[in-house]
Design a protein around this nucleic acid. Structure first.
Lengths: 125, 125
DNA sequence: GCAATAATGATAATCATTACTGTTTTTATG
DNA sequence: CATAAAAACAGTAATGATTATCATTATTGC
């Protein structure tokens, strides 16, 4: 894999936010520094970074991919009103993973846990 | 809401399988009884049934929606080799849900838990 | 039966993502 | 430093899933 400014800037950008951006948000923001960057480049590098384990791909009810530059094991909450995605740490999920492996006789490599509801900001309004 | 043969057949079909079918699979199978059924009708009714709470919409890494006619609280496992989706019951998730609500100060209404790995069938080969 | 209205089939449109292609960058080597 | 191979790029077309539109048909309450 060769170095590229675009990929480097993409990774830096993803790591700079906790907003779990989508490909098009990243594209729009990268255009400030790279006016000619291609959306295809963003998608291609997002896939490369996911493969590398540098970032995480998040799938929610929105049918649109979001990305997370923080790769420690954590989970997400999606607000149904404002569509915000928040990080949340949940204990005891190792037990759940083991349960799944045992009950299915499967080799469980990973899992995704996404909560849905109304965030605290939206509850106030 | 008015009754329609097509929606009725769709619900019966989804409830007849544990394979967590996608819209196009349902479409192809409904065509046996309704040769002129439209894919749009399938999608529209799937959304209606989800709204009604008659079925569940499942989102996995495949970027393709799958549906589940069994609406009791359960979770899923996706095999990365054969793409099969299996049901799995996991205990102790109420605690996880409470944790999320408490940590975020959010109103948690629902969550989705999907495991990924290699199913027992695929491990044998 | 009949009018109101919801659902349908057919098709077009949309949206996110992926693939293709010719050009430019990076990098290893002399 | 020059250069050639490999990788990445920008631009654009293609794909695939889902949603929207609309004229026609089916259902339902009176």
């Amino acid at each position: 894999m060769k170095y590229s400014k675009q990929r480097d800037a993409l990774l830096t950008l993803i790591r700079s936010t906790r907003s779990h951006p989508s490909a098009d948000w990243l594209y729009e923001n990268l255009r400030k520094d790279f006016p000619n960057i291609s959306l295809g480049t963003v998608y291609r590098n997002l896939s490369v970074l996911v493969e590398n384990g540098d970032i995480i791909r998040i799938r929610t009810a929105s049918n649109k991919e979001h990305f997370d530059g923080f790769v420690y094991r954590h989970h997400h909450f999606v607000c149904r009103r404002c569509d915000k995605i928040l990080d949340v740490d949940i204990d005891g999920m190792d037990a759940a993973e083991e349960q799944a492996a045992q009950k299915l006789g499967a080799q469980v490599e990973d899992y995704s846990l996404v909560f849905y509801g109304i965030c605290s900001d939206c509850q106030k309004n």
